[in-house]
Write a protein that binds this DNA or RNA. Structure first.
Length: 493
RNA sequence: CGGGGUGUAGCGUAGCCCGGUUAUCGCGCCACAUUUGGGAUGUGGAGGUCGCAAGUUCGAAUCUUGCCACCCCGACCA
């Protein structure tokens, strides 16, 4: 492990890439565009999964699993859906290899061509709705509230660890309802679940909003989203929840008999978050010393580092450390005692900072003598000597973990507020975007043409029309046409 | 996929323009000793298909062609 991460201020991209690799989160694989999520990175994803899964179940959803492959014909049943995904699909055309005649290795057996090609799912609406047709006959079968944890493939041209990979892990919820209102309510509910997860667990403040028609999911009538801001001022779409109307029900002929006996198409939603959340988590809080993890998602919340000379001292310290470990585990805190003799304390300090462990407790002979320990916070890098006689260690640790969780949220919130600017003229728009970055709250005339034009001119897109939109009469920042409310613009990941 | 750049030990690199002994240095790794409250020090040691494949040449890390991967900038996107 070499010293020193690149500085955020010098090269944000490089800092991000290096951090992901050096903190042992993920690395590029031998397969183009696909990453290996390493054990430490995966354990953070597992924490996220566990919380999200719990929240999905609390809102009445159950998990299921659908096939990785989708018959090509399914994809084309919903016109705008196929249009949106066709350009980035991996396709399976054969089912067998054979040895090459010239002995140069294996080749695809031309005899083994599939009658119908299979698409590796870029998302599962089509295969799921084709299944729902069989599951739904009556209003009694509704609502159908299903989620799946899966991998999907979108053949991206330019990939970045966690933020955009050709294969990624995610969850996709797919629900079916008897009424339009109920489906809309579900769409809103799941956006709120995502927002709550982001804010409460990831310590990541998000803007809840609605996508414009241009940015909407292919096949949806309405797309709700949560948008977060990264430390370089760019926006990151952290989750989306789509109201599908009756689009997929019509495409796959999914009808139900209502109470009055009339047949109608069912109403659908779909919603997802992906391993991209890992990217958001990393970029939102970390610093030039490495990762900063919110305690609620940190695989290791506390690390205990002994400082000793000789076996006798280590034994005395270990006895103390084991007391702490027992007490901490009893209250649900995850602890690691790093008594490896192969690395020195200073090395360990740097290592756990790089990995974002929220709290570090150092115990040395001096502490044993004084009845103290040294507690260091990752978020502020501050250290204090804690007198063990003042309160139980587990109480102290729980308090500090809470404190860290709320401090990093506040810091991210304050950053976002400072980097959200209301602008009223085109000159101001360009100036703020170029020099300050962040979110720009501005009036827009509501047309796709203007949105496109602004994107062409500045690379900024409308991130969302916030749910709590500031409604006021104004004029479009580009065209001067009338507008009834402000929308959020930003350069985005 | 278009423009630019890079690829030499696990990581970071020198050498390449101008072909010629045993491919440079640092970190890391292994052994031993001394060390341990912020990334230890010394001594000794191991580790290389010079991205891959063809070609030019008596001779290729170095020149030519093709391919692959990664990084930056565009287009596309969770």
């Amino acid at each position: 492990m070499s010293k020193g991460l690149p500085k955020r201020s010098e090269d944000y991209s490089l800092w991000y890439n290096e951090l992901v690799k050096r903190a042992d989160l993920a690395e590029n694989s031998a397969v183009r565009g696909c990453m290996v999520i390493k054990p430490y990175g995966y354990s953070i994803w597992e924490k996220m999964q566990a919380e999200l899964d719990r929240m999905f179940k609390e809102t009445g959803h159950t998990n299921a699993y659908f096939p990785l492959f989708i018959p090509k014909s399914f994809l084309s049943k919903e016109a705008s859906h196929v249009e949106g995904f066709a350009k980035e699909c991996a396709v399976v055309t054969h089912y067998r290899l054979k040895n090459a005649d010239d002995g140069s290795g294996v080749i695809v057996d031309p005899e083994a061509k599939l009658e119908e090609e299979l698409i590796v799912r870029p998302t599962s609406e089509t295969v799921i709705w084709s299944t729902y047709k069989n599951w739904i006959q009556s209003y009694r079968d509704l609502p159908l509230l299903v989620n799946q944890w899966a991998n999907v493939v979108r053949w991206e041209m330019r990939t970045r660890l966690f933020l955009r990979t050709a294969e990624f892990l995610w969850q996709e919820g797919h629900t079916a309802h008897a009424t339009r209102e109920e489906a809309i309510q579900e769409t809103e509910q799941m956006m709120n679940v995502y927002a709550q997860f982001a804010e409460e667990f990831m310590a990541l403040p998000v803007v809840r909003g609605r996508k414009t028609a241009n940015e909407r999911f292919a096949g949806a009538e309405d797309t709700l989203c949560i948008e977060a801001m990264m430390q370089d001022g760019k926006a990151l779409q952290a989750g989306t929840s789509h109201f599908l109307g009756q689009n997929f029900a019509k495409a796959f002929d999914v009808k139900f008999a209502a109470k009055d006996g009339k047949l109608d198409f069912v109403w659908g939603t779909s919603w997802g978050v992906s391993t991209r959340l890992m990217g958001a988590l990393i970029m939102a809080h970390s610093d030039d010393n490495g990762l900063v993890l919110p305690p609620k998602l940190a695989p290791i919340q506390v690390v205990i580092v002994p400082i000793y000379r000789g076996e006798e001292e280590l034994n005395a310290i270990s006895a103390k450390a084991n007391e702490f470990i027992k007490a901490l585990r009893r209250v649900g805190v995850s602890v690691r005692f790093d008594d490896r003799d192969t690395h020195k304390p200073g090395w360990k300090f740097a290592e756990y900072e790089l990995k974002g462990v929220p709290l570090r407790i150092a115990i040395g002979p001096r502490d044993l003598e004084n009845g103290t320990v040294e507690i260091a916070r990752r978020d502020t890098l501050s250290k204090e000597t804690f007198d063990l006689s003042t309160q139980p260690i587990e109480q102290k640790v729980l308090d500090m973990l809470d404190e860290i969780q709320s401090t990093i949220y506040s810091k991210a919130f304050q950053f976002r507020e400072e980097h959200t600017t209301e602008v009223n003229s085109w000159e101001e728009f360009k100036e703020v975007l170029e020099n300050k970055g962040g979110f720009i709250s501005a009036h827009w005339d509501g047309t796709g043409e203007t949105e496109e034009k602004i994107k062409e001119l500045t690379k900024a897109t409308i991130r969302c029309i916030p749910i709590n939109q500031k409604l006021e009469e104004g004029t479009c920042v580009l065209t001067g046409k009338p507008s009834s409310g402000r929308v959020l613009f930003a350069k985005a990941y």
